[in-house]
Design a protein around this nucleic acid. Sequence first.
DNA 1: ATGGCTCGTGTAACGAGA
Length: 254
Amino acid sequence: MKLATWNVNSLKVRLPQVLQWLSDNPVDVLCLQETKLTDDKFPVAEIEAAGYQVVFSGQKTYNGVAILSKLPITDVVKNNPRYEDAQQRILAATIDGVRVVCAYVPNGQSVDSDKYAYKLGWLAALHEWLAEQALLHSNLAVVGDYNIAPDDRDVHDPVAWAGQVLVSDQERAALTRLIDLGLQDAFRLFEQAEKSFSWWDYRQLGFRLNKGLRIDHILLSAPLATRCTACVIDRAPRKWEQPSDHAPVIATIV
DNA sequence: ATGGCTCGTGTAACGAGA
């Protein structure tokens, strides 16, 4: 199975790029974040015409997640059943014996904001739910935009970013607690180039200067991690016209 | 020091993202 995740920053704007990318990279499963579409506006026909089944959970203006799959999708769960949340950020489904959780973790805005407290509470509730899911599903993949750079090597300028949102100790500790449920960061199972990032600011030539962060992750349970033979970030679509600020991350599971 | 760019909303700036 080839399993990918991509924050598309509006599926309305990015649908042509998603279809082009799937044509170039016919992955089995693609998890999307920040679709920014209510369910009645989701482009089901276009995605099905490309050979994918799709499930989605969206809202107006913000957030929104979707799972595209070549193989049948079953047991769909929208949102974390342990956390009342008006924001549509989680979608889980079973595909080919793998429990796939597509997550759009809150950004947090800044460490002194209410949104940061929401982010930490949201992550604590995610941990509570995933602890149960990990017991229920040996093949568990938790993928998406985590809005957390796990380590200083995932940050273009760790000194400038020190203590800020996306890299703060509390956020990193929350990510570590998720990993301690028995998950592994697929990207770090393999040798990777230095300064490998998955997001670059639209401003200040962020991509051209490779001023980025690695905040999009594929976490795999041990049985899946042992079957994982590659994990790469595809920078290609970030070079296209009118790109998302995030690049897709792809794991190959044999 | 600030904002820089790109979205959606809604049709003008503004909030949000990261």
